[in-house]
C-alpha cells in the first residue's frame, strides 16, 4: 500500500535552528532517505519551502482567487513529505517514526486512495 507521510512542524522553530543544528538535521534526513531507498519502500519525497512562500488558489463562480499564505493558519505546517510503498499501516507507522521530524513535530500518515 502507498502512504503519504506529511511532515508537520512549527516553522518558526525550524527557522531559528542555527547553522550547525540545521546541517545536522539535513544529514539525518539524508541517512533516513538512503535507508528507506535501500529497503525499497521510498517512492518519493521533497522538502517544501515555508508557508511564507505559499500561494493558495481557489475558484469561485469561475473566478480564480488567490491568497498569500497557506490554506489554514495553524501552528504546525507541512514542511515536507515522503511517499512510501510498504506492506501495511504498521510498517508505515514504523517508517514515520524514523523520520527525524517526528521527534520535534509530527507526521501525518495518509493512505493513498487508489483510483
Amino acid at each position: 500500500m502507498k502512504y503519504l507521510l506529511l511532515i508537520c512542524s512549527d516553522e518558526d522553530q525550524v527557522a531559528t535552528l542555527n547553522q550547525e543544528d540545521g546541517e545536522a538535521m539535513l544529514a539525518e534526513y539524508g541517512v533516513f532517505a538512503e535507508e528507506m531507498a535501500a529497503r525499497g519502500v521510498l517512492a518519493g519525497g521533497e522538502r517544501l519551502r515555508p508557508t511564507a512562500d505559499a500561494t493558495t488558489v481557489k475558484v469561485r463562480s469561475g473566478e480564480v482567487l488567490l491568497s498569500d499564505g497557506p490554506y489554514a493558519e495553524t501552528k504546525e505546517q507541512i514542511g515536507g513529505y515522503f511517499l512510501v510503498d510498504c506492506a501495511d499501516l504498521d510498517e508505515a507507522i514504523e517508517i514515520a517514526a524514523k523520520i527525524p521530524g517526528a521527534r520535534v513535530g509530527s507526521i501525518e500518515v495518509r493512505p493513498i486512495w487508489p483510483m
Binding site: M1, D88, D90
Partner: peptide, 14 residues
Amino acid sequence: AHTGIPYRVPPAHL
C-alpha cells in the same frame, strides 16, 4: 480497510 491495518497478531517487536 482503507488504511491497511493488518489482520494479524503483531510481530515480536510490537
